[in-house]
C-alpha cells in the first residue's frame, strides 16, 4: 500500500474503533440503568434482585391505604394479583383508592419500597396492561 492510502485506512479504522467503543459504552450504561415495568401478576413468578429498581403499575386496592406519621402503605392490584407498597412522603393529588398508580422502587420481602409514586396528570389515566380489567 502506498503511504497515503495506508494513512487513510488507519484513520478510518481509528474512527470506526472510536465510535464502536463509544456506542458500546452508551449501550452498556443504557442496559444497566433500565427500569422494568411489571403488573402485580407479572411480578409474581419473577425473581428480582433486591437492589434492582423496578416500576409496578396497577390500581390502588380500595380500603388498603394506611397512613402512619409520614409513611403510607397501600396495595397495588390488577384484580388478579396484588403487591404491597410502602412509601414515605406525599402521594400525588390524583392518588386515590380504585384509581391507577405507578410506583418506582425496589422489591424486598414481597413489599415494594417506593422512591416515587406517580399518578398521571390526567384523570382518565390507566396504567398500561390493565385497561381490559377496568369494568370490574
Amino acid at each position: 500500500m502506498n503511504p497515503i492510502r495506508k494513512r487513510r485506512v488507519f484513520s478510518i479504522l481509528f474512527v470506526l474503533l472510536f465510535s464502536v467503543s463509544g456506542i458500546s459504552l452508551i449501550l452498556y450504561s443504557l442496559n444497566s440503568n433500565l427500569d422494568y415495568f411489571f403488573t402485580p401478576t407479572e411480578l409474581k413468578d419473577r425473581n428480582i434482585p433486591s437492589e434492582k429498581r423496578i416500576k409496578v403499575g396497577g390500581m390502588v386496592l380500595s380500603g388498603s391505604v394506611e397512613r402512619a406519621s409520614s409513611k403510607i402503605s397501600f396495595i397495588i392490584t390488577d384484580y388478579e394479583n396484588s403487591v404491597k407498597v410502602v412509601y414515605e412522603g406525599i402521594v400525588p393529588d390524583l392518588f386515590k383508592e380504585d384509581s391507577g398508580v405507578v410506583v418506582l422502587g425496589v422489591l424486598r420481602n414481597k413489599t415494594i419500597y417506593a422512591e416515587e409514586v406517580l399518578a398521571k396528570h390526567d384523570e382518565n389515566y390507566m396504567p398500561p396492561n390493565i385497561e381490559m380489567n377496568n369494568d370490574n
Binding site: 443504557l30 440503568n33 433500565l34 427500569d35 411489571f38 429498581r53 416500576k55 398500561p128
Partner: peptide, 9 residues
C-alpha cells in the same frame, strides 16, 4: 416488556 429509562442513564 415495558421498560423505562430514567435519570441514572
Amino acid at each position: 416488556q415495558k421498560i423505562s429509562v430514567g435519570a441514572p442513564f
